[in-house]
Amino acid sequence: MARRSNKWIIWLIGLVVISGMGCEEEYIPDTIDSPTKLVVEGYVEAGDQPMPAYVILTRSRSFFQKLNPGDLEGSYVHNALVQVSYDGITATLPEICLNELDTTLREVVAREFGFDPDSLQINICVYVDLSGQVVGQFGKQYQLHVEAEGEVLEATTTIPELVPLDSFRFEPTPGTPIDSLAQLIATVSDPADETNYYRQFIRINDGIYDPGFASVSDDALFNGKSLDFRINSPEDTPDDDPEVFGLFHRGDTISIKWTNIDAEHFKFWNTFESSRNSGGPFSSYVRVSTNIQGGLGVWGGYAVAYYDAIVPEK
C-alpha cells in the first residue's frame, strides 16, 4: 500500500543513480566465529480453513559461499520438544518429516508449506499439531515453548480480530491498457480505535500462497478510513519490466489469503522484507527483529480470510 511507496523511492533513486555509474565486484566478507542460534518459524491461525499450528525449527549457519542439499537439510533440528499453550491447555507438537509421508499426503503437505512437491529435493521436517489440539481463535494469546539441543526458547503471539476485505475487483491496467492483463484493487475499512496490521498472500492457479515482496502494512496512514489499494501479483519484483509489474493475467484463477497480525509479528515481516532490499548506500543494514526469546525467527498468529476469483476476460 502507501508504505510500499517508500520502497519505490529507494529503488528508483538507487537504480537511476547507481545503474549509470556502478561498478560491482564480488568479495569475501569478514565473518565472525560466533555460536549458531536456534531459529523458530511458527504460526497459528484462526478464521477460514485455518492451517494447524506448526513450527519449523532450524539452526543458523555461518556465512557461506555455496550450500549443497546436505547442508540445508542439516539445518533442521530434530527431536525437539515443541509445546503450544493457550487458555490453560498445553499441546505438544510431534515432528513430521515429508519423506515419512505417503506420496499423496506428501504432496498436499508440501504445498501447504509452500513447496512444489515435484522439485523438492530435501527432506523438510515440521512440528505440526496434527491432532488439532490447538484451536485458533480471534483475540486469543498463544505461548510457544521449545526445548532443543540443550537450549530453551519461549515466545508469545496473539491472533487479532479479523478485519476482512470489504471487496475487491479487477481493473484495466494503468496508462495504455494491456488487454491480457488486469490490476487487482481491494478495499478495506480500517477500524479507527485500534492499530491494525495486515499481511496478504496471493495464489495463482495451482501455485503456492506467495506473499510477494512487500506484503505487510500497518494502518498509520489510513487509520479509520475505507481505502482502495492495489495488490500486486507476486510473480514479479520491481526490477522486472515495470510496464507489467504486479499485474495479473486474465483467465487465471487467483486466491487472496488476507490476514491480520499483531504488532510483533508485523515488526518481524517489516524488518525481514526491508532487509532484503537494503544494503545500498541509502540505507544501512536492517537487523531483522524477533519475538523468540533465546533465539531468532518468529512465532506469529494469523486471523485469516480467503477470497477466490477468476480474473475476468476483457
Binding site: 556502478g22 561498478c23 559461499q65
Partner: peptide
Amino acid sequence: RNPYFTYTNIDTNLATGEAQAKAYKVSIF
C-alpha cells in the same frame, strides 16, 4: 575502485537444496 557500499545477495533454491550467498562491493567513480 573505492567501495561506495557493500551488499549481500543470497540465492536460495530450497527445492533443490542449493543456496549461494555472495557479497558485492560497489564503487562509483
